[in-house]
C-alpha cells in the first residue's frame, strides 16, 4: 500500500521531508522565544536586585513540580514516537495519552499559580503591588514572566491538542502511516520542554539564598 502524497517518491521520502520541515519550524520558534530571553537578560542587568526580589515571590514548588512533569512527559513522547516506529499501536496510543495528560497537568498547575499571583497582586496593570524599592524592576520581571510562561503555555496547549488528536487518529490508522506525524509531534513537544528547561532557573531560582 502506498500511503504517501503524490509529490513524494515514497512514504519514507514524505517522512524525511516532514522531519526537515518541523526542524525548520522549530528554528523559527527559537527566533520567536529568543528575543524574550534577550529582553530578560537586558532588564535583569539593569535591575538585578529587583529581579531577585521578584523571583523570590514566585511559587518554586509548583515550578519545580511542573518541570518534573514536563520532563516526564517528554520521555513518554519519545516512547510514543519509538512505539509508532516499531509498529506498536497500543503502546503508542497509551504513551500519547499519558503525554497529553501530563501536559494538561502542567497547564492546570500553571493556572493555579497564575490565580495565586493575581491574588497576591503580582500581575502588572491589574492591581500590581510590590516593595516600592524594587517596584519598577519587579513589574518588568512579572511582565516578562507572564509573557514568556504565557507563550510557553500556549505552545503546550497546542501540543496537548496535537497529542490527543494523534492518539485518536491512531485508533483507525496503522502506526506505519502515522509514524511521520507522531515523530514530528514529539519533536515539537521536546522543543517546548527544552524552552521550559531554560525558563525554570531564570524565573524561579534567582536570589533564593538572599
Amino acid at each position: 500500500m502506498s500511503a504517501h502524497a503524490s509529490h513524494f517518491e515514497s512514504r519514507e521520502h514524505q517522512r524525511e521531508s516532514a522531519e526537515l520541515g518541523i526542524w525548520v519550524f522549530l528554528a523559527t520558534e527559537l527566533m520567536f522565544f529568543g528575543p524574550l530571553f534577550l529582553a530578560y537578560t537586558l532588564l535583569r542587568l539593569s535591575a538585578p536586585d529587583a529581579f531577585a526580589a521578584a523571583s523570590r515571590e514566585t511559587h518554586i514548588i509548583i515550578g519545580t513540580v511542573n518541570t518534573a512533569v514536563l520532563l516526564t512527559s517528554s520521555m513518554f513522547a519519545a516512547i510514543a514516537s519509538r512505539s509508532a516506529h516499531l509498529g506498536q499501536r497500543r503502546a503508542a496510543i497509551v504513551c500519547l495519552w499519558i503525554t497529553a495528560f501530563l501536559g494538561a497537568t502542567f497547564l492546570g498547575l500553571k493556572a493555579i499559580e497564575y490565580l495565586d499571583e493575581w491574588q497576591e497582586h503580582l500581575v502588572p496593570w491589574l492591581g500590581f503591588q510590590f516593595d516600592p524599592l524594587h517596584a519598577e524592576g519587579a513589574a518588568q520581571f512579572f511582565i516578562l514572566y507572564f509573557a514568556m510562561t504565557g507563550l510557553h503555555a500556549l505552545h503546550l496547549t497546542i501540543g496537548v491538542g496535537i497529542m490527543v488528536c494523534f492518539a485518536w487518529q491512531l485508533r483507525a490508522h496503522s502506526p506505519a502511516s502515522m509514524r511521520g506525524r507522531i515523530e514530528i509531534g514529539a519533536l515539537y513537544w521536546h522543543f517546548v520542554d527544552a524552552i521550559w528547561v531554560f525558563l525554570y532557573p531564570l524565573i524561579y531560582l534567582v536570589g533564593r539564598y538572599g
Binding site: 526537515l20 527566533m31 519533536l187 527544552a194 528547561v197
Partner: peptide
C-alpha cells in the same frame, strides 16, 4: 538538560545532515 533532550529524545545527532544543519543555523542566527 537540553543537550540530553536534543540528543536522546530528539535524536538530532542521528538525523540527516540537512536536519543537523537546520538546527545549527537556528543557533547561529540566535
Amino acid at each position: 538538560k537540553v543537550a540530553l533532550i536534543v540528543v536522546v529524545f530528539m535524536r538530532l545527532t542521528r538525523a540527516r545532515i540537512a536536519v543537523r544543519l537546520t538546527a545549527a543555523a537556528a543557533l547561529f542566527f540566535l
